[in-house]
Design a protein around this nucleic acid. Structure first.
Lengths: 159, 159
DNA sequence: GTTTAAACCGAGTATTTAAGTTGGTATTTG
DNA sequence: CAAATACCAACTTAAATACTCGGTTTAAAC
């Protein structure tokens, strides 16, 4: 699993599309403006998303993009997989080269973890995220606790 | 949250360290050999890990690395945060620019998701991962390496 | 006390990826 | 037709990744 800024752009754009959707198609120009992502880069991302049927484009004036299917049926993993290549990490692919065992075991563990992350992200869909998250915002001011939360939580499970 | 190959290398190396640990320190040369990661790159990663107290180095011949604290108290998020910079995605940081609301709402949603991913990865520690993951593989594990593993995961009857 | 195995350190580099740019073509609306 | 939009491909820049090189400590072993 890979979660880069590219994936973030894609998720952000899809969230934007979800929020604005319903009133007809949303143009990339709008998303570009709203989210501060360059239009051409969005085009590239949406080419990937369209390839995986996550969005549907409508050409011509008044055109734009719709979600490819209901927001309930689009998971975060779907989005990230569409734009971020899923690179296989294990080099032993299968059981060749696995003569020494230890290497392969570690690979297995990584795969296990990777699957869990994937399953987790698969369990979150756009609709849920919007519903849950939407409760919280009021005028955009969020407490700055997210920084501390994230920055230096030395021991995580100790407490 | 960011989950790149760099983080994967770090997690893989830490898993290796967990698996081999107990018999004294593990050298980077061994990890390099076992996992196929260049020694100098490992040094860089371990400089980060050491900075966050996740590992403890012992110099001189017979030296190497120990886990900085028990495997139960090291989460995957700890490892990834140590090596991957946590870049703040929102550009509105605070309340400036957030006049139009929509942009900021999407940012909030992203933050929400990001926190969830972080919490999820915080909930998985090295010890658990080794215990759970060990059950699955068969054929990749070698007799002579199995001893401490078998001890820690109970039985090897899966095969 | 010399040698040696290791951690530690910092600068440099090649490759890849991300992100944006440019300059289009294809479709559809009006 | 003109305009707005998706669509497309090649190029460019900037940054991150992954690695290299050449060291310096430190401490154990001889």
């Amino acid at each position: 699993m890979r979660l880069s800024t590219k994936g973030r752009y894609a998720v952000t754009a899809m969230l934007d599309l979800t929020l604005q959707g319903g009133d007809g198609p949303v143009t990339l120009a709008e998303i570009s403006e709203t989210q501060g992502i360059s239009l051409s880069y969005l085009e590239q991302l949406f080419a990937c998303l369209r390839g995986k049927q996550l969005v549907r484009g409508v050409r011509g004036p008044g055109g734009g993009y719709y979600l490819g299917r209901p927001a309930e049926e689009i998971s975060i993993a779907d989005i990230i997989c569409a734009v971020d290549e899923w690179v296989e990490f294990t080099r032993c692919g299968g059981k060749r080269d696995c003569k020494d065992g230890k290497r392969c075991l570690t690979h297995n563990l990584w795969d296990e973890l990777s699957s869990e992350i994937f399953n987790f992200l698969s369990s979150i869909n756009l609709a849920e995220l919007v519903e849950r998250g939407g409760l919280k915002e009021e005028g955009c001011i969020r407490e700055d606790n997210k920084d501390d939360l994230v920055a230096s939580r030395g021991t995580t499970r100790a407490a």
